[in-house]
Design a binder for these strands. Structure first.
Lengths: 182, 182
DNA sequence: AGGCTCATGTAACCGGTTACATGATTAT
DNA sequence: ATAATCATGTAACCGGTTACATGAGCCT
């Protein structure tokens, strides 16, 4: 259900095409909600059929025609309802195949699991460097009157940074422990 | 695919029934891989059909009969292959509807989003208290020769603790920021 | 009498992924 | 020439969830 709310959220800012939405997802919520373009187009059709958004085809000459979607009143209502009610227990819910692998890593030699964790740590570090550019890009994007919107974007970006830092610290300690016993 | 590997991982320790597996998931990997009992039973049938596990019905008098599954050679092979190869980019992948809500929280009054975050923080704190008992329960469960298995269980539990602490610190800072502007 | 533990499932559904397909225009 | 950008989709599949169903024995 959540992709639908993401779409409604973006369309609540302003009308957009499927293509615009793909880019919006990619450049903002990507790290905690990856969306396939195929999925977005599917969901747009569904939301339109349900009356939460309405699309209008815009003819273009030098580019392919496009379909611009706007949120409807009932869509806005649905979105705001979703926003207002807390996630409850689900807020903490997440899935990680990587942690499952760590859980069962007693089945390989410590040297190998240490190598796996070292590789993971390196990945985190390079991801963190990429993330460090995000706060500025948010500030430059949302200027003027949207300032109180961008604050929340900053919050999620900040969480991303903290999460990666936590991963790095944790992996570092696991590696130390593994090195100590071998 | 990952539930399958979780099942193979547990059956690699020792043969178990579906019921045992439900409990095993619940009391160990639950926080990063929740599994429905219906799903586990479904997956067991599938894995048996594929030849990765084999089941044997055990008759009981005072309790319902049960079906004990053991991992096969090809199952063990598949499991170890999965373990050995890294997750690549996917290791960092996760989804959070809660963060999506935060991202769009500019659409409600700051007081309301602050309340949401406060509630979230309280939830985290009570979850953390529950988690603090886990390390001991792991130590008592995996005694003696399994010591080097339990180390990895400790790793994942440790990550869980750090994650929740990160959530708490982050939420605290968000709340402060929100209070400062209102 | 009521609820928990043991024990196993089916059916319908849904959210999301993978793979594939098309085609013009514009920038390098 | 080649690749990227703009722009939109379809079909098959799959992993997982929700809701429901059953029933004996044991504990309080």
């Amino acid at each position: 259900m959540s992709l639908a709310f993401g779409i409604l959220g973006f369309l609540n800012y302003k009308p957009m095409s499927g293509y615009d939405l793909v880019k919006a997802f990619d450049s903002s919520v990507e790290f905690f909600w990856h969306a396939q373009n195929s999925h977005i187009y599917l969901e747009l059709k569904k939301l339109e059929k349900q009356g939460y958004i309405s699309g209008e085809t815009v003819m273009q000459e030098d580019r392919p025609n496009k379909r611009i979607y706007s949120i409807t009143e009932s869509g806005r209502e649905k979105f705001l309802d979703w926003l207002a009610k807390g996630e409850g227990e689900d807020a903490l819910h997440f899935k990680s195949a990587f942690l499952m692998k760590v859980f069962f890593s007693g089945n390989m030699p410590p040297a190998q699991s240490a190598a796996m964790l070292r590789q993971f740590k390196v990945q985190c570090e390079s991801y963190l460097r990429k993330m460090e550019a995000i706060p500025e890009s948010i500030d430059s994007y949302g200027s003027d009157k949207e300032a109180y919107q961008t604050m929340y974007w900053q919050f999620t970006a900040d969480f991303g940074r903290r999460l990666i830092e936590t991963f790095i610290a944790w992996a570092g300690q696991c590696i130390e422990t593994l090195e100590a016993i071998s």
